[in-house]
Design a binder for these strands. Structure first.
Lengths: 126, 126
DNA sequence: TATCATTGTTAGGCTCTCCTTACTTTTTTC
DNA sequence: GAAAAAAGTAAGGAGAGCCTAACAATGATA
């Protein structure tokens, strides 16, 4: 198990690497508004859990395990965010913000139902 | 602001008083599987925040402020749980479990949409 | 190349929520 | 009414996740 904060950081690291090929600790500090020492601490924890490879200034890399975990979170996030915007007609920004928080506590079964619901019902009304 | 744990305890205290007229610290300990000292600590915090009146063995009472706050949580909980069971066809137990966690992090706007959604759409399919 | 800015680390501290152990106080029950 | 059980409190501790201040290392620039 991993905490909500660490899951957020891992997700961000993953997304940023996909988008910009690399990421530095300072990017996390800025993105989440937390101090540089707190980022260091979090990165060490992620590395301890074998989710990233962290070698200080040499950079941050995802491990296979880290990528798998991050992908799960990203998928949950997307399903939640889509459900909120498309089914409940919530604006994108608020949908994103809430997805970020709920993705850490919701069970997979509900996520699955949301995903299926999307396919079976609301598309008819578009 | 109040933490998720304290909000859970407050909600439980409120529901139990409504149901059984009174509640003791030990009931919270059993319900949430936390130690008696942890309950004491939590009750002192709730009292500090003016949400309950706590006088040790003399009992626990809700304040006006506490009742209002608990009612909000209970309402959120119910809307979430109903949405999960009726719209997403999740079983009651899992719906309850997830409502308990999500109620602490979800925005009011989404709760409102869930409530309205209920009225406008899925009732047609029952 | 010397200086300055940026990035990261160390050390120490804070709050929160939980714990255990060891009382004290109240309530049962024999 | 005395012993035992139940309920609550005090004291001290642990881990998570933050913080600041101070220091070290790297990189850019004049």
């Amino acid at each position: 198990m991993i905490s909500a904060s660490l899951e957020d950081y891992l997700e961000f690291i993953h997304n940023t690497i996909l988008e910009k090929k690399e990421i530095k600790a300072i990017d996390i500090s800025k993105a989440f508004n937390i101090s540089r020492p707190s980022v260091s601490e979090a990165l060490i924890k992620l590395a301890d859990k074998d989710l990233i490879i962290y070698e200080g200034r040499k950079g941050i890399k995802m491990t296979k395990k880290g990528i798998e975990q991050a992908q799960k979170t990203v998928k949950k996030h997307k399903i939640l965010s889509d459900f909120f915007t498309k089914v409940l007609k919530i604006d994108r920004e608020q949908a994103e913000k809430n997805a970020c928080k709920i993705e850490h506590v919701i069970d997979d079964e509900i996520i699955e139902k949301m995903e299926n619901y999307k396919e079976s019902k609301y598309k008819d009304n578009e």
